[in-house]
Simulated assay, not measured.
Amino acid sequence: MGFFITFEGIEGCGKSTQVRLAAERLSRAGHEVVVTREPGGCPIADAIRAILLDARNSAMVPMTELLLYAAARAQHIAEVVEPALASGKIVLCDRFTDSTLTYQGFGRKLDRELIARLNALAAGSIKPDMTLLFDCPVETGLARAMARINANSAAREERFEQESLLFHERIRDGFLSLAATEPSRFVVLDGSRSIGEIETMVTESILMRLPAATARR
């Protein structure tokens, strides 16, 4: 089996940039790397992503949102994640089940036990070997996220950015709560530091945990 690393955090925490940088560094070192994201990662899941993140869909109820995430994940696991891990590759995923627990559980206040069951149903036996959590103040993250959205004229994926500060505070608290319950899986990093500083911490964290089985092929 390969090695599954997930990148988590609030909006604008810098995780997507670090996914790209980590992939570049691991690839240069000779590792086989697959970069993916949730929601999305394959055509069907990307189509669901467009529905989920479109601010025009503000009428979407929380249960619909949750079930769409589960549907996108089931397709993504079957098409991308499971085959890549089975072939021994390192998979870097921008968001995974922890985001569902925090956004729909802590944020939307849906039943967390129900969410956990849906996550297990969609992901099957696939669980992260390591999760990097990028933590930063909500105001900092949202300012970054909106700057990115305003710079992108093609697609405005901003349905969550339009939620209240309290909603995003609950999500941040949720992530930190999950990290506290699984310290052996989570690595919490200061997402308010510079990109270079965070990249160094990410690299060190990954190399410390990367098993010999995923060494250069």
Score class of each variant (00 low, 15 high):
118 L>H: 07
126 I>P: 08
81 V>H: 02
83 P>K: 07
52 L>N: 08
78 A>D: 15
4 F>L: 08
30 G>L: 02
41 G>A: 08
100 T>M: 09
58 S>P: 00
110 L>F: 13
20 R>Q: 14
106 F>R: 13
82 E>G: 06
82 E>Q: 14
92 L>H: 04
86 A>I: 00
100 T>H: 06
11 E>Q: 11
38 E>N: 12
7 F>W: 01
8 E>H: 00
67 L>Y: 13
7 F>C: 02
110 L>T: 13
92 L>G: 02
82 E>Y: 07
16 S>D: 02
33 V>H: 06
119 N>T: 09
123 A>S: 15
112 R>D: 01
42 C>E: 15
131 T>Q: 00
75 Q>P: 01
89 K>R: 15
33 V>N: 09
30 G>C: 03
30 G>A: 04
117 R>Y: 05
101 L>M: 15
119 N>S: 07
95 R>P: 05
126 I>G: 02
90 I>N: 08
48 I>L: 13
22 A>P: 00
31 H>S: 04
83 P>Y: 07
32 E>M: 08
118 L>M: 15
106 F>M: 12
48 I>M: 08
77 I>N: 04
115 I>H: 11
39 P>K: 07
93 C>A: 11
113 E>M: 12
124 G>F: 07
109 K>E: 15
116 A>H: 05
64 T>S: 15
65 E>M: 08
65 E>G: 04
73 R>K: 10
124 G>M: 07
85 L>S: 12
24 E>T: 12
92 L>A: 06
130 M>Y: 13
16 S>F: 08
33 V>F: 06
43 P>F: 06
46 D>H: 06
107 G>W: 03
118 L>V: 14
34 V>Y: 11
63 M>V: 14
33 V>C: 04
37 R>A: 07
24 E>S: 14
68 L>A: 08
93 C>K: 03
58 S>F: 13
122 A>M: 10
35 V>A: 12
